[in-house]
């Protein structure tokens, strides 16, 4: 039965696939039937190892031409060689939509599904977060995370749709970092991202990657389900989430 008949939306997602030529073809068998299982595939950043255009072409080859729309964001690895523009172009040439402080709306049956995406940044969480104080480097680190979250929040709010999905690389909550050393939480996510998600009504799912040793499930303070889909966390080609409750009239 298709999701259109069921009146729900099925979202496939994976992050941190770190493609290069040595991984080509590994995911493809599992992706051949993604159209039977989901209405879209989200890629939650760290698609490459070093962020080269050549690696990005491997991503496009592996995740392009599928039966469902593929929507991606970049992660910190995808910035490593300062070729993020070339990486983005290679992905787009492969038919993948790449978001950064921007959004896209897909129609699934009668439902308009909006996806806003951004890499995000670190900064930490309540009680243990960076502040804009002291040295310029510290201020710049903190400010970058806050401004990235604000721009992401604007993209999320501007979507004209029935249900919203938040796609980031860095985590909006500490829940899904459980398993990572506490000391590195400020490098894994920021509470500003959760603030941005909670500021907009109708967000049915927040997806992120980055935290390889974290855990899958969490919730924003406002009650939005958060899922860490980093490949080493989900341990399969992709996970599928069905958005039902957020689409059910109260």
């Amino acid at each position: 039965m298709t999701s259109e008949a069921e009146g729900c939306v099925r979202v496939a997602a994976v992050g941190d696939v770190h493609l290069d030529a040595d991984v080509l073809g590994r995911y493809r068998p599992a992706l051949e039937h993604v159209g039977d299982k989901a209405d879209m595939l989200l890629l939650a950043g760290d698609l490459t190892r070093h962020g080269t255009a050549e690696e990005a072409r491997c991503v496009a080859q592996e995740f392009g031409g599928l039966a469902v729309p593929v929507i991606a964001i970049l992660g910190n690895h995808d910035y490593h060689c300062d070729q993020q523009a070339e990486v983005t172009k290679a992905l787009e040439d492969g038919g993948i939509t790449v978001l950064e402080h921007s959004g896209t709306v897909l129609r699934v049956g009668d439902v308009r599904v909006g996806v806003a995406g951004a890499k995000g940044f670190g900064g930490g969480f309540a009680g243990a977060c960076a502040s804009e104080f002291g040295e310029p480097e510290m201020k710049a680190f903190t400010r970058h995370g806050r401004e990235a979250a604000e721009r992401f929040g604007t993209a999320l709010a501007e979507l004209d749709c029935d249900v919203r999905i938040a796609l980031t690389h860095y985590s909006p909550v500490p829940d899904t970092l459980l398993g990572e050393p506490l000391e590195i939480y400020p490098f894994l996510g920021s509470y500003h991202l959760a603030q941005a998600i909670d500021a907009t009504p109708g967000v049915g799912l927040a997806v992120h990657g980055h935290a390889h040793a974290g855990s899958e499930r969490g919730t924003t303070p406002g009650g939005v389900p958060v899922r860490n889909v980093a490949h080493p966390v989900i341990k399969q080609a992709y996970n599928v989430y069905q958005l039902s409750s957020v689409l059910t009239p109260a």
Partner: peptide, 13 residues
């Protein structure tokens, strides 16, 4: 090696 099999289940939210 991280496994890459197809998912067999769906999580309903």
């Amino acid at each position: 090696l991280t496994r890459v099999q197809e998912p067999q289940d769906v999580e309903e939210l």
